[in-house]
Design a protein around this nucleic acid. Structure first.
Length: 267
DNA sequence: GATCAGGTTTGCA
DNA sequence: TGCAAACCTGAT
């Protein structure tokens, strides 16, 4: 179905590092989450052709956060933060997806010390190992399917030392399901709940808070953001002072750093 | 072949 | 509380 939206850049989102099953090819974006699959064809002039029915559209509208408070968040940026403003103007059209908590948790556990292409390969292998197959490809594994795997099978997906983390986390989720995306738990409670899983530290837990629970104040600090902090904020983390949209601002900076800045000494 | 990539855990001061 | 070192694997 056709959707008009001038303020959404799927090609940017696909490269934003918040999800690992979204790929751009030419003017088309392919997106997979859980057992769902969507293609987005950019017809130009802000018109997008989504490969979903009207019945499915509410799911995708919510997932893509089509009605998020982006304009308001941008207006709330302190005018003296010129670096952040320049990131926003270079990365307009970025949205924060509302991803599935389990899929996000597992994806970010296995992301540690891996490059984005390596993460995408790992996730795909995991889906092929124990995700349900249909004619469009493989679904993300359920907690039960993942928990039924052996550590050896997971290592076969190039998970390395993260294999037992993923396995144990899947088993724990089977026993005690993750809070739903609309949980009323406070950020702090949710964070400590996530930190209890093996292989989950502050960075991964913050990512799950931001990307699955849409807690826009959660600003994960990874090596890219640490470089931003060192270069542009004199080594002082600016996010605690940036209020309820700090995590969204972090994403603008992250995209800007990855797509437009160069890491130290990499040419 | 050494180093590093969107980190976490463990051990030791 | 803070800092290294170790950990799998693929890419450069």
């Amino acid at each position: 179905m056709l959707v008009t939206n001038n303020n959404l850049d799927f090609f940017l989102i696909a490269r934003s590092g918040q999800c690992f099953r979204m790929h751009a090819e030419g003017d088309t974006v392919f997106l997979r989450t859980g057992s769902r699959f969507l293609t987005i064809h950019d017809l130009g002039q802000g018109v997008l052709d989504l490969s979903c029915t009207e019945e499915e559209f509410p799911f995708w509208s919510h997932y893509l956060d089509l009605h998020g408070p982006y304009a308001r968040a941008i207006r709330a940026i302190p005018p003296e933060d010129t670096y952040l403003l320049s990131c926003v103007s270079a990365c307009r059209g970025l949205h924060l997806l509302r991803q599935d908590p389990f899929e996000t948790l597992i994806s970010f556990i296995l992301s540690q010390r891996k490059s984005i292409p390596a993460i995408e390969q790992c996730v795909e292998k995991l889906c092929m190992l124990c995700g349900e197959a249909d004619d469009s490809g493989y679904a993300f594994p359920t907690p039960q399917a993942l928990a039924a795997c052996t550590e050896k099978e997971l290592r076969g997906c190039a998970l390395g030392y993260r294999a037992p983390y993923v396995l144990e986390t899947a088993r724990l989720v089977c026993t005690s399901p993750l809070p739903p995306p609309n949980t009323r738990l406070s950020d702090e409670k949710l964070l400590s709940r996530l930190l209890a899983f093996p292989g989950v530290g502050i960075k991964v837990a913050s990512c799950v808070l931001l990307f699955a629970y849409h807690r826009l104040g959660s600003a994960p600090v990874d090596v890219w953001i640490q470089r931003v902090i060192d270069r542009h904020y004199g080594g002082v983390n600016p996010f605690p002072a940036l209020g309820p949209y700090a995590g969204l601002y972090q994403q603008y900076m992250f995209c800007h750093a990855r797509l437009f800045e160069h890491p130290e000494g990499s040419g």
